[in-house]
């Protein structure tokens, strides 16, 4: 009975009874391992949406067709010039370049590195991303310099009644 008030009533390894501070907020081996497991959990959870949209794409594959969208009238884009447009969605930036009298190419121009807008450098004849100097081949959209590793997605265009129309976004060859 003598030590009645001198006893710890239960194991006090927690954050609230902080009279004994020895074990407080210490990241020991076990704590760190717990953090690692937590990190694995975060990775797992954040992988889910990617798997989800991938599955969705797989099911609805078969080259999606969008309504043809008029980009520009032929007479307002001289040879060697480019115009920006949006395709297929309102927020998908794209660029149309007129290479010759009859040859047009169009790409979704969000850089495949970190999505900066890619510009057409008329004088040099190449597509340039200003952010980290990524360069793309204008004929194919393939990356030729800098950090990007993936070609720009190409947009199929047709010329009809003196105007250029966007038809669809081409898929990469598998």
């Amino acid at each position: 009975m003598t030590h009645k008030n001198n006893k710890i009533p239960f194991n006090e390894d927690n954050y609230t009874h902080n009279i004994n501070r020895n074990n407080e907020r210490k990241l020991d081996r076990r704590g760190f391992m717990k953090t690692l497991v937590g990190a694995a959990g975060v990775f797992a959870v954040s992988s889910l949406p990617w798997g989800g949209v991938a599955a969705k794409e797989l099911m609805g594959l078969g080259n999606k067709e969008y309504p043809h969208k008029k980009i520009v009238d032929i007479k307002s884009i001289p040879v060697g010039h480019s115009v920006d447009f949006k395709f297929p969605g309102e927020h998908d930036d794209a660029i149309l370049i007129r290479l010759t009298e009859t040859k047009y190419v169009a790409y979704q121009n969000a850089c495949t590195h970190l999505r900066c807008p890619v510009f057409w450098e008329k004088e040099k004849g190449e597509m340039l991303c200003p952010c980290h100097h990524g360069k793309f081949d204008v004929e194919t959209g393939a990356p030729t310099a800098g950090p990007p590793r993936r070609p720009l997605p190409e947009i199929e265009v047709i010329v009809e009644k003196d105007a250029v129309y966007a038809v669809k976004v081409k898929r990469y060859e598998v």
Binding site: F43, A44, S47, L48, W50, G51, A54, A55, E57, L58, T112, R150, R171, Y172, V174
Partner: peptide, 16 residues
């Protein structure tokens, strides 16, 4: 982003 959706899903499962 390379549109290899099957491969993407495999990696997703591995992560899970």
């Amino acid at each position: 982003y390379f549109e290899n959706y099957v491969t993407a899903m495999i990696y997703c499962v591995l992560n899970l």
